[in-house]
Design a protein around this nucleic acid. Structure first.
Length: 491
RNA sequence: GGUACCUUGACCGAGUGGUUAGGUAGCGGUCUGCAAAACCGCGUACGGCGGUUCGAAUCUGCCAGGUACCUCCA
């Protein structure tokens, strides 16, 4: 591998050189959505972050198996219904089958991901389809003495585990604090210790989603699915496990404990976490009720949105910040990103208009190298974007004939954009496929601009301005260059 | 209370112990019949107070403010 990627590992709290366990194969598991509601801006962050990692590793020549789960077995919910799971609760409310609810939101999620140009993972396993594997995991943990049954439920024995291993290794907590600070949840009385977490929960009569097990009719604890499915599809040891920072504790901490308790070692080599998207300075989250759904961004139909935003604008907005920093939502920032992206795309489409010369006045290899350097430095997409703007300036200077570029410069510029903007950052040219109708309408616009050009030659400014103003009013943007006019339709 | 993290110019947002990030907005200029676009130039920032250092926004201490996790959350 020519290029060496360094990635920040939450476990060691530093950037580490990425060395796959079985190159060129790479296994990557990312926590996906719980499908009981519409995906919001917060869901876009990990999806895009790990899409970038997936794309970049693939670009570097690795064969990546990317597993991103769908959580359709609800997690325990803290409310008066005492542990009724979220999917089932939503189902009762809407009088639907649980599977109907999760199917509906899964489709909505996929649709939103398509809009963001997030590639589908290699495998998208459902928790409900892997109950057997989860039961097996629980059995192994019990056989090794790190879990106990109580009233038909099974709990992980954190105290016992911590005698032999380190519970808190990922999140940097110590167990005494956790015991003191653990809240009084349902089932506390069944536990030996408040810090113990559920591996299997006996279903109350109110539950719709339940499965038979050696202990009771019930459902798996919410940390089991990722351990079980990660192991099933990626093996006992795999390279990368990703997710939002809010999952570090307890979810990922518990996954590590489950892996160590069942097989003696953690499954994961690199733990990678993206930061949160905030709104007015605090985290955008379902439970806080301060979220804006992706659908609302696409339509502009939300009181906090001053306009609609394309999936690609949102994608670019997210990529303009490093994945480990927070991103605060604001219309200003989003509009700024939208314009910036459009500037890059305009420059790219202008490459065709550059007239090649025999002499080169720039060194474009430097740009490509800088882009790789930035990507290798823990996926520093904002810096990559900065370099792409340098390339855009060179293109525009060449179009204006302020500098000269050779044929090979021009193809290098095209290559830089193709590799970094399109292939790795996952931007695409939206109106790539015109319908027959649109092509015809486009020709009509061309025709109007020809008339306008004639009017300009004859200095009939009133006519030429009329044509331009009318087209502008319809949403066309007309740009006059030295050798003619170009147009594009905005939005 | 415990554990992490953050504080950069109008806004967004990178970054390294001493050299221009980049974008958006603004201002001035070039180009243009005009406009838009593009190009050139400009603002000269790093929460506060100390310390280390020849030199710190970048390392260290304290203070202030903010965020996340500790409960389902991406």
């Amino acid at each position: 591998m020519e290029h060496k990627l360094s990635i920040y590992n939450t476990l060691t709290r530093k950037k580490e050189l990425f060395i796959p366990l079985n190159a060129p194969a790479v296994g990557m598991y990312v926590c996906g959505p719980t499908v009981y509601g519409d995906p919001h801006l917060g869901h876009a962050r990990p999806a895009i972050t790990f899409d970038i990692l997936f794309r970049y590793l693939t670009h570097l020549g690795y064969k990546v198996r990317y597993v991103r789960n769908i959580t359709d077995v609800g997690h325990l919910e803290h409310d008066m219904d005492e542990g009724e799971d979220k999917i089932a609760k939503k189902a009762r409310l809407e009088q639907l089958e649980p599977m109907e609810v999760s199917q509906y939101y899964t489709l909505r999620y996929h649709n939103a991901m398509d809009n963001l140009n997030v590639l589908p993972p290699s495998i998208e396993p459902h928790a409900s389809g892997h109950i057997i594997e989860q039961i097996q995991l629980v059995k192994e943990i019990m056989d090794n003495g790190y879990a106990y049954e109580s009233e038909g439920s099974v709990y992980f024995d954190v105290t016992k585990y911590n005698q032999d291993h380190h519970y808190g290794i990922l999140s940097g907590r110590n167990i005494d604090d956790m015991i003191v600070n653990t809240r009084d949840l349902d089932g506390q009385s069944e536990k030996r210790n408040p810090a113990d977490f559920a591996l299997w929960k006996k279903a109350q009569p109110i539950h719709i989603m339940k499965w038979p097990s050696p202990w009771s009719e019930g459902f798996p604890g919410w940390h089991c699915e990722c351990s079980a499915m990660g192991r099933k599809y990626l093996g006992n040891r795999f390279d990368i496990h990703g997710g939002g920072m809010d999952l570090v504790f307890p979810h990922h901490e518990c996954e590590i404990a489950q892996s160590v308790a069942s097989q003696g070692e953690d499954m994961v080599r690199y733990w990678v976490h993206n930061n949160m998207i905030t709104i007015n300075g605090s985290k955008m989250g379902k439970s806080l009720g301060n979220f804006i759904t992706l659908e609302e961004f696409f339509t502009g139909n939300h009181k906090l949105l001053s306009q609609s935003y394309s999936g690609l604008a949102i994608r670019f907005f997210i990529l303009m910040a490093h994945y480990r920093g927070t991103v605060d939502f604001s219309n200003d920032a989003l509009q700024s990103a939208e314009k910036a992206l459009s500037r890059l795309l305009d420059a790219f489409s202008g490459i065709d208009r550059i007239e090649p010369s025999k002499h080169s006045e720039v060194d474009l290899n430097i740009i490509r190298e800088k882009c790789y350097k930035a990507m290798n430095d823990d996926l520093n997409t904002p810096v990559v974007i900065g370099h792409l703007f340098d390339a855009a300036r060179i293109i525009n200077q060449a179009i204006d004939k302020r500098i000269t570029l050779t044929e090979s410069d021009i193809s290098e510029l095209r290559e830089i954009f193709n590799v970094f903007l399109f292939e790795i950052l996952g931007i695409k040219i939206e109106s790539g496929n015109y319908s027959e109708r649109e092509i015809i309408f486009g020709k009509v616009v061309d025709m109007l601009l020809e008339y306008r050009a004639t009017a300009k030659v004859n200095k009939e400014w009133e006519i030429s301005d009329n044509i331009r103003n009318s087209l502008t009013a319809l949403g066309f943007e007309i740009k006059d260059n030295k050798d003619g006019s170009t147009w594009k339709l905005n939005r």
